[in-house]
Design a protein around this nucleic acid. Sequence first.
RNA 1: GCGCUCGUAGCUCAGCGGAUAGAGCAACGGACUUCUAAUCCGUCGGUCGCAGGUUCGAAUCCUGCCGGGCGCGCCA
Length: 555
Amino acid sequence: MNLEALLSARLGAALAEVAQATVDPAVRRSQFADFQSGAALPLARSLGRPPRDIAADVAGRADLAGVATAEVSGPGFLNLTVADEVLAEAADRLVSDARLGVASAREPQTVVVDYSGPNVAKELTVGHLRSTVIGDALARTLEWLGHRVVRVNHLGDWGTSFGMLIEHLRDEGVTEAGQAGDLTAFYQAARVKFDTDEDFRTRSRLRVVTLQAGDEETLRLWRRLVATSQRYLLDTYERLGVSLTEGDFCGESSYQDQLSSVVDELQAKGLLVESDGALCAFPAGFTGRDGGPLPLIVRKSDGGFGYAATDLAALRHRVRDLGATRLLYVVGAPQRTHFRMVYAVAAAAGWLGDGVSAEHVGFGSVLGADGKMFRSRAGDSVKLTGLLDEAVARASALAPTPEVAAAVGIGAIKYADLANDRMSDYVFDWDRMLALTGNTGPYLQYAYARISSILDRAGDFAPAVTIGHRLERALALELLAFEPAVLAVGESLEPHRLTTYLSGLAGVFSAFYEQCPVLTAPAGVRESRLTLCLLTGRTLRRGLDLLGIATPAQM
RNA sequence: GCGCUCGUAGCUCAGCGGAUAGAGCAACGGACUUCUAAUCCGUCGGUCGCAGGUUCGAAUCCUGCCGGGCGCGCCA
């Protein structure tokens, strides 16, 4: 149950009487009480009465008996203090609720979450971290909220660079690309040859043509490259604790046979204009450097298709064939304009709107200690596997086993990424993200480990909450706030709202842990405190799971 | 030039229409016969980039500046 909803319902009835209209009770958490209602303040003008007077009137009429007490405060707030018995009962109900009080969506949507999207034949770098981690957290959360979630990994598995890669594969023999770990070296070697060897360059260009023509021998080599890359990606996702599977891979190549139809459909709707030999859409409201209309190039002047065509085909496929009602694109902020243009064209084509929405879920950059884009000392992008290795190595100092070190190290990286406001850049800082104190993954995992330890020692007990100590009270109140936190993530697509909540919960728990002995408490109190531990543990575990972060039982 | 985005305590960040702007780190002072003290409690610390505007009320909404980042025709 949601206490805000309960209080809002009770106050709403009284407010309706006082205001002779439906009024939002504006119930919020408060530093002065459990909750507050600020509804009386905006009513002062329309009712021509002092806000404190209105608040007192509402408090007098509201049916709060046995639920809460209300008292007028400050300029006209109602401070609401929930009855201990209500808190205890509500907490008790959580014990038998697998969803920890979080309601399942009344109207489930089909949400396509497009995230990670690495290039085949290249290794994952820190540049893929945010899309992968944020996208996965959103997919997990929306799924748990009851929506049908379709994960899509929009692989870069097509395009001109594959001519070069396939030629290189032919030159070197098939064995080399069988080694997943050295994709970068393979790519770079091909790149060097392409840049320096005229003959190779020519062969590469011809190879693209044979690939696109569907030559079986060429396709076989291409599939080998893709398969090798996918194996490596799946290994890394598993290690990262990312829920993407092989079935979620849907690369650019899979839309190739739909591109001409996209162009046909757009053309039939009069959305395309020829400009400098290319077929372009000019959605309203986008201007280029010269102040003129900005084109979305759907078909290039050489007759080939660019990424805009692929994105449009993918969008259409997701709406028409997958039945998506909400499309999420977890792609870096620099591509914001591109996606807005794609959405504008898709809307004009009738693929969006009418119950189907598309949102670009952008995010800021990962920065190094110098405040610039996070790069290695040599200046190239930082490989994700190396980053994970270092995280685990550093975490092993505070973990009893390699498995726990992996959970803590990788959890620390993911938590640090998710805990920041999505759109802001953040500085990658080992010491801060691995700290046992503060808003960090290890702090939450540590709280969970302490709870596990207590519950292990406790043995069986009959769960039942009674409120006797102010920190028991604070903890129960916090546990009941899980639902709003999870719902906020589903609506805002901002995972940091959940990290903020979980960090607060762990903070309240730690204070409780210090001041409220559990195992040595007298009968009754002991069971109640154990129940609070149980619920806190479940909430931390579930919350971290929604973020894709593991909760080891020991640290 | 146009567009997007960020600018809150020394540092890293929450808060995004409501009461004296909150955490953590750092600094300083406390608490270990105690369930994991790698923890907890307390103190110190802010003209919420600047200036206008809307409002009973603005860190929060609007406008304009200033500063950082990113984007702006055949790469994705």
